[in-house]
Nucleic acid binder design. Structure first.
Lengths: 219, 219
DNA sequence: AGCGGTCCGTGACACGTCGTCAACTTTCCG
DNA sequence: CGGAAAGTTGACGACGTGTCACGGACCGCT
């Protein structure tokens, strides 16, 4: 569609040859279809056939790109984890105090997930009867990174010498569980959630911010 | 096997008739098989056929007792939740202080899961690549109960007026995530884990117990 | 341009699981 | 004892799975 280029050099620059091009295109085609179908049906109800049907491709082609439903789901999740992991790490490494370390972690995480429609839609659909969380290699690496950063912070005297493994687990547990609650609430408010989690980790229950009185619950 | 009872009354007392008897027996047969197969294969890899094959029954019979793999899994999980829920509730209602409320919750929960082989085996197997948690109706009711108890504790002046929903989520998140870590560690120590979680909720990171120096991590 | 080699999309295939159902067996009760 | 009700059985059609021989399009070389 650009300049027709009389017939000159079959440049190996921008387009890497038709082969590579359709390969990348097909991969994106399948991934997009998968994201959509997962969001619509949930992970459990989705079949490889559903995904490939949402695509102009044949069923066999799927297996040239992914081994199974599990693998493509992992690929999708990994993309998400890959997007947030460096941001989290950077903020933690720049942290000058426990406060900064904790609050930036929660703030960034909650902001991210409250913007990430697709992924949380998928989780929700399974929520009818059961909910599940998939920890991909990338996610697990992110957890390990958090633990390392905690250990570094301890070595630097920023944190008291606590059990880094348990502390990591506690942060992860609270982050995911509260993220779920954010998604369930009418007003998604990542900032308030981050304030809550941060106060909890810094000073415990007694220093938590007082709840808005509207949280009546029943009726 | 007891006294042969010449031919007297076909008593409707201890044994409720052969019909009811085999019905209950078959149900237990299927449930036992399911527990075993789930623990061996994990939830995802298990099929209804696998379960029924571990049984002397025919495939159609399964569906007289459970609608699907999901439903029987829920039934199993519900049994577990049913066993621990009243204990947790009782301890919380007897709590005279924030300390008691929090510490008894974590202690009871961690002790329970560290004894519950079957259930955590199942979770583990999926852990190769992905992990998941199923929240059954009974489990969800347990969460709601925790939130109600928090609200009661706030009303009674035991807790400051915090966001009960978020606090519940935080407790649940930490409880499950740390339970997972306990299972992964060589020395299952529910008491230490409970002490950690309790200190976190009562006073925040700075009041956490100091870790045993052996937690080297690498090597 | 033309030509072999390679890559990869294609859809049919063999196999297994799913949930159902008509036929059969066992229990119940008058 | 005999008929009705309850429950078990295994075969069945529909569907999903992963594979593979085929064939057409692309690549690089002459």
């Amino acid at each position: 569609m650009d300049t027709p280029l009389p017939k000159a050099a079959p440049v190996r620059t921008a387009s890497l040859g038709k082969r590579e091009q359709t390969k990348a295109q097909n991969r994106e085609l399948i991934l997009d279809a998968a994201r959509q179908v997962f969001a619509e049906l949930g992970f459990g109800a989705t079949t490889v056939r559903d995904i490939i049907r949402a695509t102009p491709l044949a069923s066999g082609t799927f297996y040239n790109y992914f081994k199974s439903k599990e693998e493509i789901y992992q690929a999708i999740q990994d993309d998400v984890a890959l997007a947030i992991r460096p941001r989290l790490r950077e903020e933690r490494l720049n942290a000058k105090s426990v406060e900064e370390f904790i609050s930036s972690t929660f703030r960034t995480f909650f902001e991210f997930v409250s913007e990430d429609r697709v992924n949380f839609q998928t989780m929700r659909h399974s929520a009818d009867t059961s909910r599940f969380r998939v920890d991909t290699p990338e996610t697990i690496a992110g957890f390990a990174e958090l633990r390392e950063d905690i250990e570094k912070a301890i070595a630097a005297g920023l944190f008291p010498p606590v059990d880094a493994d348990y502390l990591m687990a506690a942060i992860v547990g609270v982050a995911f569980e509260i993220a779920e609650r954010i998604a369930h609430r009418p007003d998604h408010d990542p900032a308030a959630a981050a304030a809550f989690a941060t106060a909890l980790f810094l000073g415990g229950i007694r220093t938590l911010p007082v709840a808005a009185p509207l949280t009546a619950g029943t009726a």
